[in-house]
Simulated scan of single mutants.
Amino acid sequence: MKHSYPVLWPVPTRWADNDHYGHVNNVTYYSYFDTAVNAWLISATGTDIRDLHAIGVVAQTSCTFLGSISFPDMLQVGIRVARLGNSSINYELAVFRDAGDSLELAATGTFTHVYVDEQTRKPVPIPAVIRAAVEPLVVTAPAEG
């Protein structure tokens, strides 16, 4: 499973992530998605993406929970791209608990960035520096037949 994600981005859990039941609260997974994608974009582009003429706003997210995590677990967030459009990127993500010698799948999800003009908030083409960074992450469907 981890090999189907071209990027594994480290994200530590935090003390505040645990809820009263002793595990990471479900809404926190969305924060892990956002943190991993944007931190990876900054690293991969060598650019502070907040300074680009277009900004990526999150238009859609989803998450399927498969296992429990809690502080102080170390995580790896798998990142791949399911669709690269003109103004949007559909990411597929996986949250793995780093168990030392293995990664245990805790959740899978989706995350869609739509690029908009920073002033008008109208959709615009994905900035070239972003497109160049994410193109290698596009997952191609296996050939039919």
Rank of each mutant, 00 (worst) to 15 (best):
F33G: 05
V11W: 11
P10D: 10
F33Q: 04
N38P: 13
V37W: 11
V27H: 14
Y29E: 07
A36K: 07
P10R: 11
G22R: 10
Y21K: 05
D19N: 14
F33N: 05
Y21P: 13
L41P: 06
Y29G: 09
H23N: 07
R14T: 04
S31C: 11
N25A: 02
A36L: 10
Y30S: 00
V27G: 05
T13H: 05
H23W: 11
W9E: 00
N38K: 11
V24C: 07
G22P: 09
I42T: 08
W40G: 04
W9D: 09
T13C: 02
H23T: 01
D17F: 14
Y29S: 02
T35D: 09
A36V: 09
P12C: 07
S31F: 13
H20F: 12
V27Y: 08
V27S: 14
N18S: 02
W9I: 01
N25K: 00
W40K: 01
T35Y: 10
V27E: 03
T28W: 03
D17E: 09
P10H: 12
G22L: 07
Y29T: 03
T35M: 06
Y29F: 15
F33A: 07
V24E: 01
N38A: 09
Y21W: 12
W40P: 12
N25L: 01
S43N: 10
H23S: 06
Y30K: 06
W15D: 02
N38D: 13
P12N: 13
D17M: 12
W15V: 05
D19H: 04
H20D: 02
Y32I: 01
N38F: 13
P10W: 11
V24P: 10
S31N: 15
Y30M: 02
N26Y: 12
Y29V: 09
Y21L: 09
I42M: 14
D19E: 08
P12G: 03
Y30H: 14
P10S: 11
W15H: 08
N38C: 03
D19M: 06
H23M: 04
H20K: 12
I42H: 15
S31H: 15
T35G: 11
V11Y: 13
T28G: 01
Y21F: 15
T28D: 02
D17G: 05
G22H: 06
I42E: 14
S43W: 14
D34V: 01
L41F: 13
A36M: 08
D34S: 13
F33H: 09
A39N: 13
W15M: 03
N25H: 14
R14P: 04
I42S: 09
Y30P: 00
I42R: 15
N26K: 08
W9R: 03
S31A: 15
Y21C: 03
T13G: 06
N18Y: 12
V24N: 01
A39P: 04
V11L: 08
A16F: 04
V11M: 07
W9H: 14
